[in-house]
Design a protein around this nucleic acid. Sequence first.
DNA 1: ACAAGCCATATTTGGAAGTC
DNA 2: GACTTCCAAATATGGCTTGT
Lengths: 207, 207
Amino acid sequence: MARKKLRHTYINNPLKRKTTFKKRKNGFLKKVDEITTLSDIRACAIIYTLDEPEPKVWPSNQGLESVISRFRGVSELAQSKRMLCQENLLKRNIMKAQGKLMNEIKKKEIGLFMCQYFASWNNLDNANIIDQNDITLLANKKLEITKKNEILQVQEVTPAIENGGETMTEGEQTLVANVDAMPNLNWSNDNIDDGDGDGIDVKIGRC
Amino acid sequence: MARKKLRHTYINNPLKRKTTFKKRKNGFLKKVDEITTLSDIRACAIIYTLDEPEPKVWPSNQGLESVISRFRGVSELAQSKRMLCQENLLKRNIMKAQGKLMNEIKKKEIGLFMCQYFASWNNLDNANIIDQNDITLLANKKLEITKKNEILQVQEVTPAIENGGETMTEGEQTLVANVDAMPNLNWSNDNIDDGDGDGIDVKIGRC
DNA sequence: ACAAGCCATATTTGGAAGTC
DNA sequence: GACTTCCAAATATGGCTTGT
């Protein structure tokens, strides 16, 4: 914002939009960096654009990647990125031909990427204190729930596990309970359109 | 900032830190909002604090929640939040007693929350075009991989699927390939400490 | 302790101009 | 076109004060 009050709308001019985005993206990442540094905030940002083959992530592309590399010995994320890159090239072509459909694919892909990202991120922490069982449990739960949905479809079960403030005092147990308590965050396959959806994706902010 | 150049470091004074964070958090969310509106960017932010029982998410807490509510009929997210709230109260107590351990639990929980959140988010999109199979696949893959790791432990397989720019032309197929190509983004249980880890969490910035 | 508001200053960022 | 640099208008936000 400068020299002209910003009209808070979508910028139609592609070039201008791109330029603005680039500038703001930087500002945004910087912001994340600041807020993080200043207050122990744990934040994660992922900028995902079709234009740029590489999804931009934060903590500093390098930052995270180095951690991951250290973690796995090889940077699979990089591989993943490369793959996504190729995927994107492919998808761009598809897009030219299919247009709108692309958006849907993109959304889906981004969701997957995000989920995957956070999942792996999650594993960067001290997995020894609370082992990966919680994650496995989560995955299990999802499969289970998915299945349940397929079969029961409508059964609004909502067990409403209200054991939140019980007597658990051990980390893992708490987490397990946590996972168990969320069967309602299920995987219905209803169809809802949340609006537009086009080319870029910042995984930070507010998603 | 203002009146004083910001020293880019952790703010030790708890009160000041909290205040600053609050201000900046707003600015940050606003930023996300802007960048999103201006350029079709899809962004997501999750602020997660132990102090505030409710994890703050974006698109507009309401925004997303309304979508989810509409989607499921009942706001399970709200339930989840309430649950997390109780969890947090519990955890705060634990923290007082166990200190550092809490951080680990928190990290883990955040990861789970994120993953879960994005997963559900993912499902908000037009699940009809690409059904939930990809998600199920992902979950499956994870379980599978986890298992594999448990058994083979060291086998640095790295299939390095280089079929990115092949001949796929159908959305779902592409995604499946996508998922299949990421077995290396595995679930090792090695142990790595990524640094501090304390009370707040913006799912945008850093961990 | 917070929350809200004010204010002066620190930052951010549209736009234009110049280069590659 | 894409990037860089400059510059000024537009914002963001420390630090303070006042009210609960």
